[in-house]
Design a protein around this nucleic acid. Structure first.
Length: 801
DNA sequence: GAGTTTGAAACT
DNA sequence: CAGTTTCAAACTC
């Protein structure tokens, strides 16, 4: 893929590029009507309140959460919630509050623990790429987001001494999730309260599901919690079972002097449907941001109650979306459990890999030296920052990550409303110095560190997290930075999350764009894929990752309204089928093509010689780059927020109409159903508020719409009455003679017929048709009515006979 | 459905 | 930046 120069990174939503930015909207001033995010400043407290409730709800303990423990392991069982409902998605939440450390989580959907004997379950261990050191304050909370109906997921608090592990299940019932959290070396003893793993360097084993039988020991990882720590939920390790594994790698804090506040958001979506592309509902695991208190600060335990009651503390906590930036990383890899029957291909994973899970990683950025004070205070108070809700309405903002098939190791990030998928190239885990991967074709490769072999189930899951070579792509659906409450929609199609915030806030990148890491941003590159990308790949399960939504203030969380995008409401844009293009010469690689311009792949179009598809990725990327070279904002929505005092929506560039009077769909303003503004350069514009022509047009349009509705209603009424008549007169028909049609001309039928005729007359009048023409259309309508009556009559007679 | 009109995008 | 060409959608017949 082509790489976009680092400077293009600015095009990406801040949330993507900058962990802190995730929380803030500052970069999108024009587009961001939302109130300033408290998190914009590090000292601002993280608004946790709104999320907290959700956490509680999610965390409602399931009667029993199976915990599998291999040495130091925590296993979670996720239950399948109702698959069909988008909101019903299940998710696993991870709350991590490690200080200045990077974590790598690799959740995998697992078979139900309760069914250890299940053939699907084969033991699998994940290896931690890097030893994790967790400070006492680190907390890892796994929440079972969605459990089987009626069952409540109760968060399990695993660790004491500052480290906590809440394990909740997400996704399929009985799918165990193993979460290993290595204790910090220094505080290993404290971290490991019980169990074998305490104080000893234990291998962190993750059990993966999905057909991977191999267990990979995690080297250098100390078990954080023991089975005994899991209250009531833990159970002995079930070997041989395949589990989904969450790997957490923690890196040592960069600087010890400064308190590190790290927040992690891990979202995991489980797809119980396995590889079935048709799975309508994808369980989603969402993760939460964890704040970390400074090591020296007393560890704070967050209980559910606390979470609920706790208000945002000092602003030190920030949610970092992008992992891998700083030495401390949090990488979450979720792997879908492969269906036993269908092995997944290691490499290009077709999107059909439904079972794959979403990777969500949020990395807390180390507290900047400039804001040391904040970090400390904030660190002490553990704040549940993000809510990982799956499918819940009113949940905090989410990011959806969909496993991409094609380039292995790809993370897609979709920005709701933007219709673009951002692909993030993830560098290798922080521990190792960046090394260029030879595999990556693009310059990005150089920026990307070779992933450490963080192995996720290679067989079953293709999402290796970290360390992605250029080939690895993450799809993340960033939510608008503003606080709107995201909607999580799990469907086969991409719309994962619908942010309540205005879509305009999102600054879409051209599809296919790869962004080289911005200077100082760490080894990360982003690629933007068009939304259909996933679809083409067969849209596997969509996973929603909780973004650092916690940042939004509670007040902002309410909105779920979908704001208009490019003249269309979000709902329209998502529900209305896209118009197929008819390009013939542009190969659908120029902005002439609406599909391309919208960042979408052509699908069901009438174009010829189309290159706007996965088969021509290279050409497409080049075209995208060319478009961006010409106009860096080429792929941004044309309809954005106007200046102060102007209409909320206006064309970003204005139109240049000369002959249409801006009252035809040639005009982009008119097409978007907005008035022309001061920036338009149109000639003879009639598309302004007081324009009589425009008003007339609007009235005509309204009248036409009403007529259509009336006509439709009249016809429906007529048909229903005729049918009803048929039903009631059947005996008469059977016995009657040859005058059947007249039998049906009842009063009701006559009235309905008259309605149709009157409608035609009105239409003729409105369209200024001549009297002769009006009479003609009326007669024609009358003929149609008669014909219909006769047909029904004849049919009734035939049926009776 | 073919042909024309239109204006954005692309090109010079 | 302006003028011209290309292109595909909108529109007309």
């Amino acid at each position: 893929m082509d790489v976009v120069p680092p400077e293009l990174n600015s095009l990406l939503p801040d949330e993507i590029m900058d962990t802190e930015a995730i929380v803030t909207d500052d970069d999108l001033p024009a587009v961001c009507p939302a109130p300033p995010n408290p998190l914009d400043t590090q000292d601002a407290p993280v608004p946790m309140e709104t999320e907290v409730p959700e956490i509680v709800t999610l965390c409602t303990a399931a009667p029993s959460i199976p915990v599998q423990r291999t040495q130091a392991m925590t296993t979670l069982t996720s239950t399948d919630s109702t698959p069909s409902s988008g909101s019903s998605s299940t998710g696993t939440q991870l709350l991590l509050t490690p200080s200045s450390s990077s974590l790598t989580l690799q959740p995998t959907t697992l078979p139900v623990l309760s069914k250890p004997s299940s053939p699907q379950v084969t033991g699998g261990l994940q290896k931690l790429s890097a030893p994790l050191t967790l400070s006492a304050n680190h907390q890892l909370i796994l929440n079972k987001v969605a459990s089987s109906p009626g069952s409540e997921a109760k968060p399990t608090l695993l660790k004491q001494d500052g480290q906590k592990l809440l394990v909740t299940t997400l996704g399929k019932t009985g799918q165990p999730i193993v979460l290993a959290l290595p204790p910090s070396a220094a505080k290993a003893g404290t971290v490991l309260s019980t169990g074998d793993g305490k104080g000893q360097p234990q291998q962190f084993k993750v059990v993966t599901i999905g057909g991977r039988t191999d267990l990979k020991p995690m080297v250098g990882v100390q078990a954080v919690s023991t089975a005994s720590q899991l209250v009531g939920t833990s159970h002995t390790n079930q070997q041989g079972q395949q589990l989904k594994t969450v790997q957490i790698t923690k890196k040592a804090p960069v600087s010890t002097a400064a308190p590190m506040i790290t927040k992690f958001i891990i979202t995991k979506a489980l797809n119980n449907k396995g590889l079935t592309s048709q799975a309508s509902v994808s369980p989603v695991l969402t993760g939460r941001v964890l704040t970390q208190s400074a090591p020296d600060t007393p560890p704070r335990t967050i209980t559910v109650a606390d979470a609920l009651s706790s208000t945002p503390q000092s602003g030190g906590s920030k949610v970092a979306i992008s992992p891998l930036k700083s030495p401390s990383k949090l990488t979450v890899v979720s792997v879908a459990s492969p269906s036993p029957a269908s092995p997944q291909k290691p490499m290009a994973v077709p999107l059909s890999m439904l079972g794959q899970q979403i990777l969500t990683v949020q990395q807390p950025t180390p507290t900047s030296p400039a804001k040391p004070g904040v970090s400390h205070s904030a660190a002490q108070a553990v704040k549940p920052v993000q809510t990982v809700t799956v499918g819940g309405v009113g949940t905090p903002q989410f990011k959806t990550i969909v496993p991409l098939a094609s380039p292995p190791n790809v993370q897609q990030i979709q920005v709701p409303g933007s219709r673009f998928h951002y692909v993030r190239l993830v560098t290798a885990s922080s521990g190792s110095p960046p090394a260029a991967t030879g595999s990556s074709p693009s310059s990005v490769a150089t920026t990307i560190q070779p992933a450490k072999p963080m192995v996720v189930n290679s067989a079953a899951v293709r999402m290796s997290v970290p360390i992605v070579s250029a080939q690895t792509v993450k799809q993340v659906v960033p939510k608008p930075l503003t606080s709107a409450t995201p909607q999580v929609v799990t469907s086969q199609q991409q719309r994962l999350i619908m942010p309540a915030t205005p879509l305009q806030q999102i600054q879409p990148l051209p599809p296919g764009t790869l962004l080289a890491p911005a200077p100082g941003s760490g080894n990360m590159g982003y690629a933007v894929l068009s939304a259909p990308y996933v679809t083409q790949l067969q849209q596997s399960t969509i996973v929603t990752l909780a973004s650092a939504s916690g940042f939004s203030t509670p007040s902002t969380v309410q909105t779920q309204a979908r704001l208009p995008l490019n003249g269309l409401s979000a709902s329209d844009s998502t529900s209305r089928p896209r118009k197929p293009c008819n390009c013939t010469k542009s190969q659908c690689l120029k902005l002439y093509c609406d599909c391309f311009a919208n960042g979408e792949f052509c699908s069901n179009c009438n174009c010829t010689n189309c290159f706007n598809n996965l088969d021509h990725e290279s050409e497409r990327l080049k075209a995208i780059k060319a478009c961006l070279d010409r106009n860096p904002e080429a792929f941004k929505p044309k309809i954005g927020k106007g200046k102060e005092g102007e209409s909320d929506r206006r064309h970003s560039k204005g139109c240049n109409c000369k002959r249409s009077g801006c009252l035809k769909n040639y005009c982009e303003c008119y097409e978007a159903k907005i008035m022309c503004s001061s920036i338009c350069k149109c000639v003879g514009c009639k598309n302004f508020e007081e324009s009589p022509e425009r008003k007339t047009l609007m009235h005509l349009a309204d009248a036409a719409e009403v007529r259509v509705q009336q006509q439709t209603a009249a016809k429906t009424k007529l048909s229903s009455q005729i049918s009803d008549l048929l039903t009631r007169t059947t005996p008469a028909i059977s016995s009657g003679g040859g005058k059947l049609p007249y039998t049906f001309v009842t009063k009701e039928v006559a009235e309905a017929t008259c309605d149709c005729l009157m409608e035609q007359a009105e239409q003729a009048e409105l369209s200024n048709q001549s009297q002769a023409m009006a009479e003609r259309v009326i007669l024609e309508e009358f003929g149609r009515c008669l014909k219909r009556i006769i047909n029904y009559a004849g049919k009734a007679k035939t049926d009776c006979c």
